[in-house]
Design a protein around this nucleic acid. Structure first.
Ligand SMILES: NC(=O)c1ccc[n+]([C@@H]2O[C@H](COP(=O)([O-])OP(=O)(O)OC[C@H]3O[C@@H](n4cnc5c(N)ncnc54)[C@H](O)[C@@H]3O)[C@@H](O)[C@H]2O)c1
Ligand SMILES: NC(=O)c1ccc[n+]([C@@H]2O[C@H](COP(=O)([O-])OP(=O)(O)OC[C@H]3O[C@@H](n4cnc5c(N)ncnc54)[C@H](O)[C@@H]3O)[C@@H](O)[C@H]2O)c1
Lengths: 205, 205
DNA sequence: ATTAAATTGTTAATTTATAAACAAAAAGAT
DNA sequence: ATCTTTTTGTTTATAAATTAACAATTTAAT
């Protein structure tokens, strides 16, 4: 199936988060303009995204929340789910781990890796923590597809290489060290400083 | 002065990070294609961004690293700097605080806020931690412009309102709770789940 | 029944972002 | 000196993303 535009994929993920919330609050239907307002987007944009993923609403009633959650799931989720490993379980790694637990059944954090012996060999937040040296075996055995890198900067490169050699398909990198990945590995990076500098720039007149 | 496109601003921030690194490694000049490669961008894009900010290189020699860092500073940095407050100093807040310290002299984290009495009333990472109830006074007194929200979700809304009432100009929100801000407050949001779902989507064929 | 209002779905237009093309300048090679 | 190569700077073209426009449908009101 043809891939959707990256921007649409991002928004679908965001819409789903909101829809799950709506569902928990007992909301059955939602209008495009409601969803738009919650995301500071236009209603047209929302409808266009929904159209692109091949879902339909009911005129004058809006979109069925439950069905739309499922429709987004058919786009974003892999049928049998995808397994995730986090490397470097310090402040940021722990924040991510906690944030993830229980949120997305199809995106399972099944392993975390560190070098600190106070952390390895036990479970943190219900997830086993392994020594980084075991990345090859564990990634293979646990069928880990995606890696999140939250190690100190100077270990970022070797961590990425380790994950890639172990057969990972996608990386989310929070160290702000430039990484080189082969074509068939998808790389996403995020830097809070960039976000804050953007806020700083646009916040002043 | 006219604002640059948001995408260009983001890239300038990223370029600067890399340039600072280059400078520390004693690199004096950099070519557009080198900078491009480090950021998985094209050389044309890099040159265009540089052109948009009104900076010039030297033909066949590239861009002077030190001068370009300064030029980006003239775009991104406020003359007298901007002060930042972080609200909610748990795992994520601490990760951000540590990550920031010392990195951007013009973007100073001058206060952190929490409700936990084990944290308030002392310094964390060299930054005083105040009780959230004192946001109005502290924001005023310390001349805080920008706020980062890393509180538990259910307190996100009131935190944002508190910051806005205290006169903040920009917010970086890591709780994934929809916020409403007045027109003159710039809001940026980030969700790691969205990033990872994007990686998951594009990482599979 | 008829009309009016609200809302979706889709096409068309516009705007923004990226890439291509190429002139100009500098450095080095012949 | 002249030519070739490399690299910047800028314009032009292409592509992507967003917004506008509007037809179609449903519901409610008169
Ligand atoms: N991009 C961003 O927005 C952003 C924000 C905050 C932090 N960071 C970066 O994220 C990383 C982690 O930040 P943090 O605050 O959690 O740091 P931290 O020091 O709290 O945690 C780092 C963890 O990595 C472990 N570690 C060290 N070497 C390792 C190795 N070779 N392999 C595996 N694990 C190893 C440590 O034992 C520790 O548990 C740092 O690189 C930091 O600069 C990025
Ligand atoms: N957007 C993302 O990518 C992302 C990732 C991880 C976590 N999060 C979110 O960030 C937030 C913080 O995550 P965390 O892992 O650091 O949680 P945490 O529990 O470790 O930290 C929360 C902190 O907020 C403090 N706090 C509680 N109520 C407060 C209030 N009313 N005012 C000020 N401070 C208060 C607590 O004392 C604690 O120190 C959560 O909302 C979490 O969901 C977002």
């Amino acid at each position: 199936m043809e891939k959707l535009p990256a921007k649409t994929v991002e928004r679908l993920s965001e819409y789903r988060r909101t829809l799950i919330n709506c569902k928990e609050n007992g909301k059955e239907y939602i209008y495009s303009h409601e969803l738009a307002q919650l995301h500071h987007k236009t209603a047209v944009q929302v409808r266009r995204d929904i159209m692109l993923m091949g879902f339909s609403g009911i005129q004058r009633k809006g979109y069925k929340v439950k069905e739309m959650i499922d429709a987004i799931g058919r786009i974003l989720d892999c049928k049998n789910g995808q397994n995730v490993g986090i490397v470097g379980i310090g402040h940021l790694g722990t924040a991510i781990l906690q944030y993830f637990t229980g949120k997305r059944p199809k995106l399972r954090v099944v392993a975390i890796f560190d070098v600190d012996e106070k952390k390895t060999g036990r479970e943190i937040n219900g997830v086993p923590c392994y020594h980084v040296d075991t990345i090859p075996e564990v990634v293979e055995r646990e069928n880990i597809d995606l890696g999140i890198i939250t190690v100190p900067p100077k270990f970022a490169k070797e961590t990425a290489e380790g994950l890639i050699n172990a057969g990972i398909r996608g990386i989310l990198n929070f160290t702000t060290v430039p990484l080189n990945v082969p074509e068939d590995v998808y790389l996403e990076e995020y830097d809070m400083i960039t976000s804050l500098e953007k806020v700083a720039y646009f916040a002043r007149g």
